[in-house]
Design a protein around this nucleic acid. Structure first.
Lengths: 67, 67
DNA sequence: AAAAAATAGCAAGCATACTTTACATTTTTT
DNA sequence: AAAAAATGTAAAGTATGCTTGCTATTTTTT
């Protein structure tokens, strides 16, 4: 699954660590989500989206889950 | 966490079974999400939201995850 | 070029999101 | 009121989303 997290981080000049702290998770979790190792949980997806002032669908490309 | 799934099902005259089949999961999973036993995964949340033609945030009340 | 910062990757462990099976309970239909 | 349909719940098992700790690699800064 693709996400715009890395792109949004760069635009806002944030490290993974800084974003992780801001949304209450770990840097490794942000890394894992960015690299596609696993899919963010709904609560975390929401917190990340809200942090950037966007909707979940604007941050996470979920099209692969729909035919 | 609250969701509008039950409400939307009633409006559309759907049983849990019918919704479950439509989004590719089990009736028990829909029941568990409706009763708050656990939180839907992001992919499933998206499929449910799309099924009703809504956004994830319109179906799932995620406000408790934000201060 | 060297050092510092950032990121990727691994592993182990824990919690949670399911699936399957089955039964209990409630609601709806007859 | 009885039967059927729908829903709630429990349990066990599996897969996944984390957290923690660490090292390797890459990128950025000096």
């Amino acid at each position: 699954m693709n996400t715009r997290i890395k792109e949004l981080r760069k635009e806002n000049k944030l490290s993974q660590e800084e974003l992780a702290l801001a949304v209450g998770t770990t840097r490794q979790t942000i890394s894992s989500i960015e690299t596609g190792k696993y899919v963010a949980s709904l609560p975390l997806a929401y917190k990340i989206a809200r942090y950037f002032g966007l909707t979940i669908e604007e941050v996470f490309d979920l099209s692969e889950y729909i035919e």
